[in-house]
């Protein structure tokens, strides 16, 4: 017993020493050379290239350009998978509803006060992560998940009846989710509809003008790159994710009194 404690302590100290040695001396690796690999060159050429807009996504953030421009359809199917999972959860909890005044009035006043202070900060940080997804690391899904953390904090500290009092019912959350998904669909076919109405060619998930299509989403907002479709996708994806994930959290937090009517069990007793 005594010996094992000493062994654990010594090994933890060795681990800390090893990690600090790695970080200080070369664990971060040598500085990269100026010679880029061909893959990096192609990404740099195709993500933000104001001189050849027909080959470019006009987004300074390469990952967002890949996720929503180069493989936009794939990302849409990923979003749909999450939506189908939420739909399964709703089908499982069909007819459930948050009942007022069951048991809890939330956690104590200390937790409520600090949640009041911190939840708006988390919401703002998540929103900036989502709306700046085309300029800095982040994106719609990440920002939406970030904001869901604030909603979960609110749901736990103030109890889920708080959402009901603020008119944020389960149906409204589902509606928010559907509005987000619908906005993604509308944005992805917007240029195609425009081309059908005005003549000419366009593609679904088209962002900047292409070789045989002059239609384009706006690429600049005042003096900042907007990256057209990427900004709108990030916006609607974050709305969809905050609606869907908050709905899932609220459903999983339902109390026994609310679930008795749905899960049943009455006929076996």
């Amino acid at each position: 017993m005594r010996l094992s404690d000493i062994a654990i302590g010594v090994s933890m100290a060795m681990l800390a020493l090893l990690l600090s040695y790695l970080i200080v001396y070369g664990g971060l690796g040598p500085i990269a050379t100026l010679n880029l690999r061909p893959l990096a060159v192609s990404f740099l050429n195709y993500t933000y290239n104001p001189w050849k807009i027909v080959y470019s996504a006009m987004s300074p953030e390469a990952v967002t350009a890949i996720v929503w421009d180069f493989r936009g359809l794939d990302t849409y199917f990923e979003t749909s998978v999450l939506f189908i999972a939420i739909v399964g959860l709703i089908a499982l909890f069909r007819g459930a509803n948050v009942v007022q005044g069951v048991s809890s009035k939330g956690l104590s006043i200390i937790v409520k006060t600090s949640t009041k202070l911190v939840a708006p900060l988390i919401l703002v940080a998540g929103a900036s992560l989502a709306f700046h997804g085309h300029l800095s690391p982040g994106g719609g899904f990440q920002g939406g998940s970030f904001m869901t953390v604030a909603m979960t904090l609110l749901a736990i500290a103030f109890s889920i009846e708080f959402f009901q009092q603020k008119k944020l019912t389960l149906n409204r959350l589902l509606a928010i989710r559907c509005i987000g998904l619908l906005a993604i669909v509308v944005v992805s076919v917007y240029l195609l509809v425009k081309a059908v109405l005005l003549g000419g060619y366009a593609y679904i998930f088209q962002n900047m003008p292409r070789i045989n299509s002059q239609y384009s989403m706006p690429s600049w907002f005042l003096d900042r790159p907007l990256a057209g479709i990427l900004f709108f996708f990030n916006l609607s994806e974050s709305i969809a994710v905050i609606g869907g994930l908050t709905l899932g959290v609220v459903l999983l937090l339902l109390r026994e009194e609310e679930l008795k009517a749905i899960i049943g069990g009455g006929e076996h007793e």
């Binding site: 956690l107 200390i110 937790v111 600090s114």
Partner: peptide, 16 residues
Amino acid sequence: IVTMILSQAGSHALAR
């Protein structure tokens, strides 16, 4: 600052 706000709330909630 955020850690100072949150860590006391978390430990209070755990203890309660």
